Deep mutational scan, measured.
Amino acid sequence: PKDQAKKEIEKALRNGDEEKAKRLAKKYGISDDDWKELKKRVS
């Protein structure tokens, strides 16, 4: 599910692991808009 994916990506971003977050986003098909939203929430 997308919500689970977003949680994992957000966690990776919080850990400062943007490479992992990007890989997860690609793997789960997270859209650019969702990606920006996640980045905003974390920063």
Rank of each mutant, 00 (worst) to 15 (best):
Y28G: 03
D34M: 07
K7H: 12
K40D: 15
Y28L: 10
E19L: 08
K6C: 11
D3V: 09
D33Y: 06
G29T: 03
K36L: 15
A5H: 12
K7G: 07
L38C: 05
D17I: 01
D33N: 08
E19S: 08
S31H: 04
A5P: 05
G29D: 12
K11R: 13
D3L: 10
K27W: 10
Q4W: 15
K20M: 14
I9V: 09
K26G: 06
L24H: 01
K36F: 14
E8R: 07
A21N: 00
A25S: 04
K26E: 15
D34K: 03
A21S: 03
D33R: 06
K2G: 12
N15P: 00
Y28E: 05
Y28P: 01
L13G: 00
R23A: 14
K22R: 13
E8W: 08
D32E: 14
A25Y: 02
K26V: 12
L13P: 00
A21T: 00
K27E: 15
K7V: 11
E18H: 09
K11F: 07
Y28M: 09
K11V: 12
Y28N: 07
K11Y: 06
K2N: 14
K27G: 04
K11W: 05
E18L: 11
K26P: 02
S43A: 14
P1G: 14
R23V: 09
E19M: 07
N15T: 10
R14F: 05
W35G: 00
W35Q: 01
K40E: 15
R23M: 13
K2R: 12
E8T: 05
A5L: 09
K26M: 10
E19K: 10
K20T: 14
R23Q: 15
G29W: 03
S31R: 02
K22P: 00
K7C: 09
L13D: 00
D3M: 11
R14T: 04
D32H: 06
A12E: 05
I9D: 00
K6W: 15
E18N: 08
W35F: 15
Y28W: 07
P1H: 14
Q4N: 12
K6S: 08
Y28H: 12
D17E: 10
G29Q: 11
L38D: 01
P1A: 15
K6Q: 09
K22S: 08
R23F: 09
E18V: 13
S31A: 05
L38A: 03
E8A: 08
K2T: 13
E18Y: 14
D34E: 15
D32Q: 07
D17Y: 10
K36I: 14
K11T: 13
L24Q: 01
K40C: 09
K36S: 09
K2P: 10
K7L: 13
A12P: 00
S31L: 04
E8V: 05
D3Q: 11
K22E: 10
L38Q: 02
V42L: 10
N15A: 13
K20Y: 14
E37T: 03
G16P: 01
E37L: 05
L24S: 01
V42Y: 07
E8P: 01
P1C: 12
Y28F: 11
S31D: 09
A25K: 12
K36W: 14
G29A: 09
A12N: 03
E10S: 05
P1T: 13
L24T: 02
K36N: 15
R41I: 12
K2Y: 13
K22G: 04
A5T: 04
K22N: 05
K26N: 12
R14D: 03
D3E: 14
D33C: 04
I9S: 00
A12C: 06
K20I: 09
E8C: 11
P1W: 12
L38F: 03
A21K: 00
R41N: 12
K6N: 07
K20D: 08
S43D: 14
L13H: 00
K39F: 04
R23E: 15
E37V: 03
A12Q: 04
R14V: 06
I30F: 10
K6E: 10
K40Q: 14
R14K: 08
K36P: 02
S43T: 11
K40H: 13
K39H: 10
R23P: 00
D3H: 11
L38T: 03
D33L: 08
R41W: 04
K22H: 09
R41Y: 04
K22F: 04
K7R: 14
S31M: 04
A25F: 02
K6R: 13
E37A: 08
V42P: 02
G16R: 04
A25W: 02
I9C: 03
S43E: 15
W35R: 01
E8F: 05
K11P: 00
R14L: 11
Y28K: 02
V42D: 03
D32P: 07
A21P: 00
R14C: 08
K26A: 12
I30H: 01
W35A: 01
G16S: 03
L13F: 03
Y28V: 06
A5E: 11
I9K: 00
S43C: 07
R23Y: 11
D34A: 07
E18M: 12
R14I: 08
W35I: 08
K26D: 15
K36H: 12
S31C: 03
I30W: 09
E10V: 11
W35P: 00
Y28C: 05
K39M: 12
D3W: 13
E18G: 05
V42W: 03
Q4T: 11
Q4R: 13
E19Y: 05
A21C: 01
E37G: 04
N15G: 09
D17H: 09
A12F: 06
G16Y: 04
R14Q: 07
I30C: 04
G29R: 05
I9P: 00
A12S: 04
D17G: 02
L24E: 02
L24C: 02
A5C: 06
K2L: 15
N15D: 15
R23S: 12
D17K: 04
A12D: 02
D3F: 11
E19F: 05
R14E: 05
L38R: 01
V42E: 03
D33Q: 10
D17P: 01
E10L: 15
K39S: 05
K26T: 10
D33K: 09
K27P: 00
